[in-house]
Design a binder for these strands. Structure first.
Lengths: 135, 135
DNA sequence: GATTAGTCTACTTATTTGGTGGATTAATCA
DNA sequence: TGATTAATCCACCAAATAAGTAGACTAATC
């Protein structure tokens, strides 16, 4: 399951996609429109900015906006920043790999199954982008 | 990510698959062989028994054993019992569905994407079974 | 220099995860 | 029948993570 934080992130991003190329959007506007706790949203947007997906401007006329075209930002990348690994086991994660305690990866059936799940999942999440958030 | 509990469950089950049709296996044997904390394993096995995947026998010669052929038990079913939903959003879960607060399912891009992920994931997890745990 | 709006640090609170202790019940065997 | 074996059940605990909040600070604009 995606965390609430990740769900908030996608809701916020979908608003920024709608306003793409229309200048900065206030955090407070996003919070109000999308019903996200303001201070919590601050943290989320900051994290997304540090990861390079958003840019921001301070002062009057400031706010947040997408750093690049929504069609260039895969859904998978957002999940990794906000929630971490997408895979169901550490030993099959591409970006957060950890060796399996007590499991020989060469002879572990679960490993193989979860590798398959990861591939199928990423095939979708790497190809769907923020532009697909607005239907 | 699967919880540690679910990972323990699969490790324990793979042992029971290896011993399938050879009578009951002691919790303590599984715990030792698979290096799972004994008392925690008790809880896990009990849960799996109540869900109908295992049977047990008390007293001397007792222990746990699979309730049916490993090839009849899908990996998906085990995950649902131990960890709950497989889907990435409540609003696309088949067994743990919950309506999305603040998201119109007919017009939500994320909903559609995660529906696709769910289908791709379940296509694998419903067809792989406990017999696939032993390679 | 007043105002606006994001940044940063540091909490707090709630929930989930992972794990333990100990008494009880059921089956077997001597 | 009573000792032994092994699962069952209940109730708890600690650590980690998730979710949310407070308030001072910095940068841009007017």
């Amino acid at each position: 399951m995606l965390s609430k934080k990740a769900q908030y992130a996608f809701r916020a991003l979908s608003h920024l996609v709608d306003k793409f190329d229309q200048g900065p959007v206030l955090i407070s506007e996003i919070a109000k429109k999308k019903r996200i706790p303001l201070k919590f949203l601050e943290n989320i947007l900051l994290e997304l900015r540090k990861a390079g997906f958003l840019e921001s401007k301070k002062g009057k006329g400031g706010g947040y906006y997408l750093a690049k075209n929504p069609s260039k930002i895969p859904v998978a990348a957002i999940i990794r920043v906000v929630d971490g690994p997408i895979a169901m086991l550490p030993c099959v994660s591409l970006y957060f790999y950890q060796r399996c305690k007590n499991c020989d990866e060469k002879r572990c059936g679960l490993h193989d199954i979860m590798e398959g799940v990861r591939d199928a999942t990423l095939h979708i999440l790497e190809n769907k982008t923020l532009k697909d958030l607005s239907v």
